[in-house]
Write a protein that binds this DNA or RNA. Structure first.
Lengths: 192, 192
DNA sequence: ATGAAAAAATGACCACGGTCAATATTAAAT
DNA sequence: ATTTAATATTGACCGTGGTCATTTTTTCAT
């Protein structure tokens, strides 16, 4: 006997999500505690885990939302044609992705879907990032000896590398943007 | 008044390390519990944290050791000259790095040193990986329009990308080796 | 040998994510 | 309106990483 989804379900879920957003707003993602969220939402702890498999699932949703907004912004502008333009267009996304060490680590951890069944919000965002970049590259004046798919995968790999090094004290001499530009010049318009 | 380092210190540390190795040997890295390690080592829990800052610090040591052994192996052979040879030389390292999801995630998380002061075993391994590849590339017949440093950084970025996708159900059609070969061909010997 | 100070080890304790049997609420069938 | 079963909520409880005041052991100057 299938019963309709209850009103209070979506209400509780909304309460949890907005409580979590408030916590993050003031203290960042890293500092979020499930106990604090449920207290702010006025529900029991068990309720949280009835709505989200685990804390990471909530994080995936919230981080995925923000990242999707960045990708919306990237898609809204006129398609970038050059490496600096591409980097500029992706800047909001990259900036958010490296806003917190915690966020970056979680993004990497969930960037790939473990099972085809559970493509989470973050895995979806990575797919979308890839697709957006691929479309740009197709219309831009880049090397044509390999497919746009491959080029886009490479852009993603280099962006992740550059973001990783942003957190690394050993490589802090070069800025993120400079490094990524060096990578992408060499990747997208080789002269060798 | 500075006092000499005590014998029991290194003995206790050795006990903890070998106990941890035994646990990992039988159940893998993911399953390691600090309580189990201290029980096997016959010490109190507090002692563990007097020897290692946290569980991750122990993991860094053990994983770094194994990875260093893989890099020893890579350096022992004759320097690879072609992309397939490079991939073959790095195979033990890549294989270990992706042996467990837990291991891969930890590697990525500690691949960069947060502060110059604390270059951990894993950050050191990544530096070493980079250096080894760079030396190979200098002696191989690869594109010369960009520096070997840059090429080596790219190899690392693509290797990480290929390893990431190994855990991803969405991209399981292509094997790790095939994917990495495609990446490195396009990166190291572009024809565009 | 003795006393003092530094180093090491201890284990009760805490923080926090996550579980689950019990309870409460809701929607539909009668 | 009453019953029934699916759904939602609860909070005591657990597992595990990590802390710290206290105790034990070692080292060294005398």
């Amino acid at each position: 006997m299938q019963k309709a989804i209850q009103n209070r379900t979506i209400k509780t879920r909304a309460k949890l999500l907005s409580a979590a957003e408030a916590v993050i707003q003031s203290d960042g993602y890293q500092a979020l505690r499930v106990e604090e969220v449920v207290k702010a939402a006025g529900v029991a702890k068990g309720t949280f885990f009835a709505h989200f498999n685990d804390k990471d699932a909530l994080m995936e949703i919230l981080i995925g939302e923000r990242l999707n907004a960045c990708l919306d912004q990237a898609e809204a502008g006129t398609p970038p044609k050059t490496v600096p333009e591409i980097i500029a267009a992706l800047e909001p996304a990259h900036s958010f992705m490296t806003s917190e060490r915690y966020v970056f680590d979680l993004l990497i951890r969930y960037s790939g879907a473990t099972a085809v069944a559970d493509i989470g919000p973050i895995a979806y965002c990575f797919e979308r990032y890839f697709r957006v970049v691929m479309l740009w590259l197709e219309a831009a004046d880049m090397r044509k000896d390999v497919s746009s798919e491959l080029l886009a995968e490479g852009v993603q790999a280099f962006a992740i590398q550059a973001m990783s090094l942003r957190f690394c004290a050993l490589h802090s001499a070069t800025t993120f943007t400079d490094r990524l530009e060096t990578y992408l010049d060499a990747w997208l318009t080789p002269t060798g």
